[in-house]
């Protein structure tokens, strides 16, 4: 993965300020229907709620099995929100949009924005 400066170091020292970039990873194992569903659901949610302020990396564990241990992946598919902290994991096909939003803390994020 490419190194990014995720913290966006706010000059005013506002520690609670949301970062501008959301770093997301979706772990899948092959192009299974469930993976594809999860990816499509995630894409839709992100476009609607984060529009361009996110990075999404899809990791296929069939190709890179050694990456599973790093993020403690057991369930597939698993979406990991690496930033902003804390790390959150959302497992399943992301079909329940409401829960994905809660899981990603997007509701709070949007409230702060507005």
């Amino acid at each position: 993965m490419a190194a990014k400066d995720p913290f966006n170091s706010p000059s005013d020292g506002q520690r609670t300020a949301p970062p501008t970039i959301w770093e997301l990873r979706l772990y899948v194992a092959g192009r299974t229907p469930r993976s594809l569903t999860a990816f499509a659901n995630l894409k839709a949610i992100c476009e609607e709620n984060l529009g361009g302020r996110y990075t999404l990396e899809v990791i296929d564990l069939l190709e890179n099995p050694q990456l599973a241990a790093g993020d403690q992946i057991l369930a597939i598919p698993t979406l990991v929100r690496r930033l902003p902290p804390p790390v959150r994991k959302i497992i399943g096909d992301l079909s329940n949009t409401e829960r994905v939003l809660v899981g990603l803390d997007l509701r709070t994020a949007r409230a702060v924005e507005e």
Partner: peptide
């Protein structure tokens, strides 16, 4: 040795899943 940590507090479930990740880790 593979340490599998399952932390309930940081996991949210949204629909069906499987344990393919565990299989892959074990297989690896």
């Amino acid at each position: 040795v593979d340490f599998v940590s399952v932390a309930r507090e940081e996991i949210e479930a949204t629909g069906e899943y499987d344990l393919e990740g565990l299989f892959i880790r074990l297989d690896h």
